[in-house]
C-alpha cells in the first residue's frame, strides 16, 4: 500500500469513528450494522475475489454464527467464549460443504452454497426447540468485556468497529503471506498455479472455510447488535446482498467489500422514497452496473488512470 493510501485509510477510519456521537440511535445502529456486514463481506471477498469462486450461502454462515451466540449466551456463556465457537463451527461446516463442491467445477460451489442456504433456513425455521422457529430468539444480551458492559449503542459501536479493524488486519496479513499469494495465483491462472505445485483444491477449500468463519464472526456480532434474531434474516436474499456487496465494490480488491457494503446497506435506505419499487430499481441498477463497470466501483479509479495516460 502506498503512503497516500495509508493516510487515506487512517483518515477515513478516524472520520468513521468520530461520526457516531453526533448521530441519532438509528444512525449509530446503521454504522454498527455496516461493520458487521463488512466482516462477512471481507470473508466472502476471500472466496470470490481471491480464490475466484462463487458463493451464495454467506448468510447461512452468518446465521449459524448468530444462532450460536443467541443460544449459548442465553445459557450464560460469555460472548468472547462463544465467538471462537461460532467461527470454528462455520469453518468446519465450510470444509464439509466445500469438499464435494470444489472437487469439480467452479460454478458448482455457487449451487451447493445456494442450496445449503435454503437448507439452513429450513432447519432454523423447523427446529423450534432450539431456534424458536419463525418466532426467533429474543432477549440476547449485549456482551461484557473484561467487566465493562457494552450495553450502550455507542460503546457497542466502538467494540464492533475495533473488532472489524482487527479482522481486516488479520486478513491483510493472511493475503500478504506466501499462502495468500498462492490465492492470487489461483484466481489469475489456475492451471499455471497447479503446474507450479499449488494444490488448487486444498487452497480453495481453505479460502472458502475461512470466508465462512468470517461470516460466523459477523453473525455473532449481528446477534448481539440486534438482540433479536429470526430465520428470514439469513435466507438467500441476504446472501445475494453480501455477494453483491463484494462484486459491486470490486471483488479481489481489499477495500472492495467496504465500498460495496456501504452501497448495498445504504442504497436501500436512500431509495426508501421509491417504496415498493426500490428493490426493482436496485436489481436493475446492479445489472446496469455490471454491464458498464464489470470490475465494480473501485475499478473506476483504474479506468480513470488509464484514460489519463
Amino acid at each position: 500500500m502506498s503512503r497516500r493510501q495509508t493516510v487515506a485509510v487512517v483518515v477515513g477510519l478516524a472520520l468513521y469513528a468520530l461520526l457516531p456521537p453526533f448521530l441519532k440511535n438509528y444512525g449509530v445502529y446503521l454504522m454498527t450494522l455496516l461493520c458487521v456486514y463488512v466482516m462477512a463481506a471481507m470473508g466472502l471477498n476471500l472466496v470470490v475475489g481471491y480464490a475466484g469462486q462463487m458463493s451464495i450461502g454467506q448468510a447461512a454462515f452468518f446465521g449459524i454464527g448468530a444462532y450460536h451466540v443467541a443460544i449459548l449466551m442465553k445459557l450464560g456463556l460469555p460472548f468472547l467464549a462463544v465467538l471462537p465457537l461460532a467461527a470454528g463451527s462455520c469453518f468446519v461446516i465450510g470444509l464439509l460443504l466445500g469438499f464435494p463442491a470444489l472437487r469439480v467445477q467452479h460454478h458448482y460451489l455457487a449451487f451447493a452454497t445456494l442450496g445449503f442456504n435454503v437448507l439452513v433456513y429450513l432447519v432454523l425455521r423447523n427446529e423450534q426447540g432450539w431456534t424458536g422457529g419463525t418466532f426467533g430468539l429474543a432477549g440476547i444480551p449485549r456482551p461484557t468485556l473484561f467487566g465493562v458492559e457494552l450495553d450502550g449503542n455507542l460503546a457497542f459501536f466502538y467494540f464492533t468497529l475495533a473488532s472489524t479493524v482487527v479482522l481486516a488486519l488479520l486478513l491483510a496479513w493472511l493475503l500478504r503471506s506466501p499462502w495468500g499469494r498462492a490465492f492470487a495465483a489461483l484466481r489469475d491462472n489456475p492451471i499455471r498455479a497447479e503446474s507450479l505445485g499449488v494444490n488448487i483444491t486444498a487452497y480453495t477449500l481453505l479460502a472458502f472455510a475461512i470466508g465462512a468463519a468470517c461470516a460466523g464472526v459477523g453473525g455473532a456480532y449481528y446477534a448481539v447488535l440486534v438482540q433479536y434474531i429470526e430465520p428470514s434474516a439469513f435466507n438467500v436474499p441476504a446472501s445475494l446482498m453480501m455477494l453483491l456487496a463484494v462484486i459491486v465494490g470490486g471483488s479481489g480488491r481489499f477495500f472492495g467489500p467496504l465500498v460495496g457494503t456501504v452501497v448495498v446497506v445504504l442504497l436501500p435506505e436512500w431509495l426508501r422514497f421509491a417504496q415498493n419499487w426500490y428493490l426493482m430499481v436496485f436489481g436493475f441498477a446492479v445489472v446496469a452496473l455490471m454491464v458498464w463497470l464489470p470490475g465494480g466501483v473501485l475499478s473506476l479509479a483504474d479506468r480513470w488512470r488509464r484514460a489519463r495516460r
Binding site: V48, G52, M54, H106, H107, A110, P237, L240, L243, L244, I247, S251, N276, W277, Y278, L279, M280, F282, G283, F284, A285, V286, V287, L289, M290, V291, P294
Partner: peptide, 17 residues
C-alpha cells in the same frame, strides 16, 4: 462468468420486485 452471474442475479431481483 462472474459479472454475468451477478447481472442475472440482479435481473432476478429486479424482475421479481
Amino acid at each position: 462468468v462472474i459479472p454475468l452471474v451477478i447481472a442475472t442475479l440482479g435481473l432476478s431481483i429486479g424482475l421479481k420486485s
